[in-house]
């Protein structure tokens, strides 16, 4: 599903190149649950952003479903978001001015899903995540865990093949965190590919493979099973 070949990322600041990622080679197959770990500044988030096509690479090749992403324009990449990728962030990133219902609706609107289908999809998702009662509330009226639940729901509503989660439990207490992780695990069992970034060994254990990053390089890869 995902193939990275010698991906690198740097910021040039007049004379100095600051390297963030170097020599990244990795492959993710459909149905994988991959964890990216590493100390702060190791390039975890940048790698995730590159995988999510939110950030450009400085060099290397990136194939997503055999499409060369490094050669695509922004419009095509947007097409990939809409179809295949859902994001979950540490800081939830819900739109503050929209209600739960409207937040869930947004990706469907961009995907140009028809009204009737949209309504039923949202209803289904609200039901599945058990947040029907919250649908008319604004994000700031929800607890962190609930907000992250909505964020996960929003990521899932387009039925993505890939979920990218950037420390999804970082702002949550342990109970809420476990709930979210269980949910991700359940999704993975249903066949959704998941790539998560985390600091937490326990959360990392949910994945079948752990990629350790250090100073922009892949330090080691732990395979489970």
């Amino acid at each position: 599903m995902i193939r990275l070949k010698d991906v690198e990322k740097y910021y040039s600041n007049k004379f100095v190149k600051t390297w963030v990622l170097r020599n990244i080679d990795m492959e993710v197959k459909e149905g994988d649950f991959v964890t990216i770990m590493g100390p702060s500044g190791a390039g975890k988030s940048t790698l995730l952003h590159i995988l999510g096509m939110l950030d450009d690479m400085s060099g290397g090749e990136y194939y997503f479903l055999d499409e060369p992403v490094h050669q695509l324009n922004e419009r095509k990449r947007t097409g990939f978001h809409q179809q295949y990728i859902g994001f979950v962030f540490q800081a939830y990133h819900l739109i503050d001015e929209l209600t739960v219902y409207e937040n869930l609706e947004t990706p469907l609107l961009y995907k140009k899903v028809k009204t009737s289908e949209r309504k039923s999809l949202i209803a289904e998702t609200l039901d599945r995540f058990n947040i029907v009662a919250k649908k008319d509330l604004f994000p700031n009226q929800l607890s962190g865990g609930q907000q992250q639940l909505v964020a996960v729901a929003r990521a899932l509503i387009i039925n993505p093949k890939l979920i990218l989660a950037d420390e999804p439990t970082g702002n949550l207490n342990s109970k809420q965190g476990l709930e979210i992780m269980d949910m991700l695990k359940a999704l993975n069992d249903e066949g959704t590919t998941i790539i998560q970034v985390t600091h937490d060994e326990k959360k990392a254990a949910y994945g079948d493979r752990i990629i350790h990053l250090l100073d922009g390089y892949i330090d080691k890869i732990d395979e489970r099973n």
Partner: peptide
């Protein structure tokens, strides 16, 4: 900015 970021992440293109 945050709203724009989220919209882009959820599939908005710059034109939208």
């Amino acid at each position: 900015a945050k709203e724009i970021g989220i919209r882009k992440v959820t599939g908005a293109n710059p034109r939208q």
